[in-house]
């Protein structure tokens, strides 16, 4: 992954020196050409192409913005209801993520989408304790976290 990025930068510099024109536009052209070369030689690398990971990160950002808007609308509906029918509760969520940055990112995403707040991470970092505003559909909440955020983060970190 990092080797591919370094190789791509090296190819871009090489292109700049070959054409002996040291400007930003030349560098960008060289970078794109290096990207094409790396795409063509994808069988040489034993890990994923780094451009896949960049795409996964873009997808994660889009997913986060979508979830943020949807969840805020659902909280607005809860606030404007004349009757308070919600049942706040805590539940434990077992995560498959292991790395520090993955857990931090997942917790931030869960906290920033309203209705759920991460209040504690267990000492072995294997489960999160989440406060949910409406416990009538906890299973649906767990499923939505597991199938949207956790999947997207795993997609980014897959080698």
């Amino acid at each position: 992954m990092s080797f591919q990025i370094l190789l791509n930068l090296f190819l871009a510099f090489l292109w700049m020196f070959l054409s002996s024109n040291y400007s930003v536009s030349r560098f960008i052209i060289g970078y794109l050409l290096g990207l094409l070369a790396i795409l063509a030689m994808r069988r040489f690398f034993n890990s994923r192409l780094y451009i896949d990971r960049v795409w996964a990160i873009i997808k994660l950002v889009v997913l986060f913005i979508k979830e943020l808007i949807l969840a805020n609308i659902s909280v607005l509906v809860l606030v404007l209801k004349p009757k308070l029918e919600m049942q706040p509760a805590f539940f434990k969520y077992n995560t498959e993520l292991t790395e520090e940055w993955e857990i931090t990112l997942l917790s931030s995403l869960i906290t920033l989408t309203p209705g759920t707040v991460v209040v504690h991470v267990s000492n072995d970092s294997k489960s999160l304790f989440i406060h949910v505003i409406d416990s009538n559909d906890i299973d649906a909440t767990i499923d939505s976290i597991r199938n949207s955020f956790e999947k997207a983060i795993l997609e980014v970190s897959r080698t």
Partner: peptide, 12 residues
């Protein structure tokens, strides 16, 4: 009791 500060430490 020692709490797990993984989020705070990584962000810091």
């Amino acid at each position: 009791m020692k709490t797990n500060d993984v989020i705070l430490q990584f962000t810091a």
